[in-house]
Design a protein around this nucleic acid. Structure first.
Lengths: 369, 369
DNA sequence: CTGTTAGCGCATTCAT
DNA sequence: ATGAATGCGCTAACAG
């Protein structure tokens, strides 16, 4: 007596190569070759196979192929956050190039945490992807996890938040120049006590933009005050509290330069909640993409990075390396230009008028509020 | 004479199970079991294996495992766009739940095109993922591609932009109610000729929100004018042109209800470029997330969807099905509540004020300043 | 407790 | 031009 066969209901179960071959009365190797347009297959059978494959809707198992060929047709993207116009636009560009190349995109968010960046990097050490695009977490100090990926010879391109210690190509924007221009813009608009909201000391964008800030101050003979540089790594709510506190302690501040969108928004909110008029009492300039920029009009002048292009170029460099089987070289790095989107409100001649706020703050402090 | 061996430089090449077993003088099956904490392995060898594995940084090849176990530890997310606060927040929620479950996330953008949705769906028919989260493209009429995935018994959950024709669980927000409230809000703020910007007739969110709009008009005895309903499927720039044209042709319009963020922004821009004052000449209410909402203040009152929660819940339902190996049932569907974020500016007859500033001033006055 | 064997689905040798 | 056999890396069934 035969044991009852367990036949789970598989309505329209996917067909595999062997079954397809069975239907055709051919061996699976012949079918495999026919589908890959091998020259050593007669035109007749090739046709027949391809017609039947389409008819039965044959889809090769991608992981079997990966195992065999050591090619995954998949890239990994590691980034700090996605709820941010810069990164979501960048993903847009990345995904588009990936689709063009017939590639799949695995996405990993680090939430700006070095720990999470390490653990997702670990996932990618085992041949899960053919290449990696990465934008560093602001909390990242040690980059050994990425160095490991490099040693495994997985092609890698960094974008925007990069570390030059890693020997890879990078796609960045002109952080120094735009930092300089942003600061100069505030100075020309009459600001003299300009706060700088730093995202992270050890992140390229943080330091470069800050160098631009320092150079602009210097060129315009404004003394640098270290007390006006506020560290804004850490979570949003924490930053908001810190900025609020900072603004109350420093009522003389008449301009804010935020080095990333998150901080621009936090400072915007901090000012709102403190009743500080933007841009009448304080002028704000921040890195942010065009959509947000237009929304903030006319309160906030912005440095708009070409996020979509950054993603696209980074992906392009990566796929060049993958398809040509060449290493990604630092020499392939690209720097794209940001755009200073000037709002009428922060243009020259409109002097900040936060006298009233200063007065109130002093009064509040005086009574120990 | 031996042929020269081609030894490509493989610095720190990844180690596999067999090699690890070789190092330990064990068979690969023993090592496999030891790593998986099988009960039938002596504690001594298990320790030894795990130590060595860590030492040599052994990472199992994920695709070999997938092939063997028919489990990919990967989900696919299909969505219209990512450059949108709703979807990027939703991804945030999805990714978080995925990481908690040790899963990987493949992302596919359709750019609101039925064609692209079909082709990415095709990628997922071959066992690439264990489950799918999908939000329909506004252009999608025919859903046979998704029905095919369902027939293959791939767990699937729809979110936000769903089709009830598909027999799956859905995670949506209270579109009818919030559409009603939004319209009523404009009416209470004094609007009488309210335009509705429709995203797509055949998308649940479009029709439900519109039903709320119609019901509110009816309940407030405002006649429905089909000429005030503007179709806003299609690309952004096209919508902008269409809205501009519409507003010039219909100067009597005093309110706009935009059914998605994209359209709210386009109408905002259209008004700006036409010199129409918001909210003095026209009041706008639109679906949008909190961050954008706060940026647009005080011009635009918003319906804020709990995007992060939507993503999280959708993922949770999906993983429940995957891990319990149960089908996803329509009965598991959830409807979350949106929030009407009212700006002072669109309230009936009210002036914008800043509570915090007023508070501080009063405190100062109270102590005699 | 551990080793041997087989097979997931596919592409590639090697044979014919 | 086609078929049989092999192995990618892993796990599970089947010995011992």
């Amino acid at each position: 007596m035969l044991a009852p066969v367990l036949t789970p209901i598989l309505p329209m179960s996917a067909i595999n190569l062997k079954q397809l071959a069975g239907q055709l009365g051919l061996s699976s190797s012949t079918v495999s070759r026919a589908l890959r347009d091998s020259y050593e297959i007669s035109t007749a059978t090739r046709e027949r196979v391809q017609v039947m494959a389409r008819q039965l809707d044959y889809q090769p198992n991608p992981y079997a192929g990966s195992l065999r060929n050591n090619v995954t047709k998949t890239i990994g993207v590691i980034l700090p956050e996605v709820d941010n116009h810069f990164f979501s636009s960048a993903i847009n560009g990345i995904e588009e190039v990936a689709q063009q190349n017939g590639y799949h995109v695995l996405i990993y968010l680090t939430h700006d945490s070095e720990e999470q960046e390490k653990s997702v990097s670990q996932y990618l050490t085992s041949g899960r992807v053919d290449g990696i695009l990465v934008s560093l977490a602001s909390g990242t100090r040690n980059i050994s996890h990425l160095e490991k990926l490099k040693k495994l010879e997985i092609p890698m391109v960094q974008f925007d938040r990069v570390s030059k210690k890693l020997n890879t190509a990078t796609v960045t924007t002109d952080d120094y120049v735009s930092g300089y221009k942003a600061t100069e813009h505030l100075i020309r608009a009459g600001c003299r006590r300009i706060a700088y909201l730093l995202v992270s000391e050890n992140l390229s964008i943080g330091s470069k933009r800050m160098q631009g800030y320092l150079a602009a101050l210097h060129d315009h003979h404004i003394p640098y005050d270290a007390g006006l540089v506020l560290n804004g790594s850490g979570p949003n709510d924490e930053n908001l509290v810190r900025i609020r506190h900072f603004l109350r302690q420093n009522p003389q501040v008449d301009g804010i330069f935020a080095s990333v969108e998150r901080l621009a928004l936090s400072s915007y909110h901090a000012c709102q909640s403190l009743g500080i008029a933007i841009p009448k009492a304080i002028k704000i300039i921040g890195f942010s993409n065009m959509e947000t920029a237009s929304l903030l009009a006319p309160s906030l002048t912005t440095i708009t990075q070409p996020a979509y292009a950054v993603g696209k170029e980074a992906a392009r460099i990566l796929f060049h390396a993958i398809t040509k089987n060449k290493p990604v070289l630092p020499a392939q790095s690209i720097e794209l230009k940001s755009e200073l989107v000037v709002r009428a409100s922060t243009q020259a001649g409109s002097q900040p008028t936060n006298a009233r706020f200063v007065e109130v703050c002093q009064a509040v402090q005086a009574v120990g509020f």
